[in-house]
Design a protein around this nucleic acid. Structure first.
Length: 200
DNA sequence: GAGTAGATCGGCT
DNA sequence: GCCGATCTACTCG
């Protein structure tokens, strides 16, 4: 097992990258406690031309400026005032492409994840859904703009998922994006229990 | 099990 | 002021 190299994140094709991230292992280390899970669901957000993206039309604010960074850092932002959503920034500098991680399957530190979520039993909803997985892995806004090859959060190779097990479907919760809402830019492992609810 | 409301921050119209 | 890349708790059947 080795961390994915910096060059992995510089791919300019977000959709290709979103698909490649399926089956990878996402790690966090907080106060010496390591938790990790296999990525089973992602969504691609393609820069300034994607109406569902925060960077649509070149929008640049304190929050979204992270997306304009060089690939290989995290973009964590607050949604609905409550949930921290974790994205992987990809592509070269000033190309605001990002991949939203929507679901992981717990592998390492399951006890710690349960504790963070205040749950007693391991159920799929521990880490199914972007808000849920962030909380389980201990990701909050202090992880924004972190180097994904560092010591606090990183990604390694995980499962070998064959192409036929990866399904492409429309993205979730972006109905407002009009003609871009139906693009099949959501990817997930067919039949996996930790894929978020709507659809699957 | 399905449907609805509440939580609560950043960025628009 | 309203709505969003959401989740949970609470109601009613």
């Amino acid at each position: 097992m080795a961390k994915l190299p910096f060059s992995f994140y510089l791919n300019t094709d977000v959709n290709s990258l979103a698909r490649q991230l399926i089956g990878k292992m996402l790690f966090t280390q907080i106060d010496g406690e390591i938790t990790a899970g296999i990525i089973v669901e992602t969504e691609a957000y393609a820069g300034i031309e994607d109406k569902a993206s925060h960077a649509y039309g070149g929008r640049l604010t304190d929050r979204t400026k992270t997306m304009y960074l060089k690939g290989g850092v995290s973009y964590v932002y607050l949604c609905y005032g409550i949930h921290n959503l974790f994205n992987v920034v990809t592509g070269p500098l000033n190309t605001p492409h990002a991949v939203l991680i929507r679901g992981v399957e717990p592998v390492i530190g399951t006890e710690i994840m349960l504790q963070r979520r205040g749950m007693a039993l391991l159920k799929p909803n521990l880490t199914a859904g972007p808000g849920a997985l962030s909380k389980a892995l201990g990701i909050d806004r202090t992880f924004n703009a972190k180097d994904l090859t560092g010591e606090e959060i990183w990604i390694e190779d995980g499962w070998d998922v064959d192409t036929e097990s990866i399904v492409a479907a429309p993205r979730v919760g972006v109905g407002y994006a009009a003609d871009h809402a139906l693009l099949p830019w959501r990817y997930y492992i067919k039949g996996n229990r930790f894929v978020s609810k709507p659809n699957s």
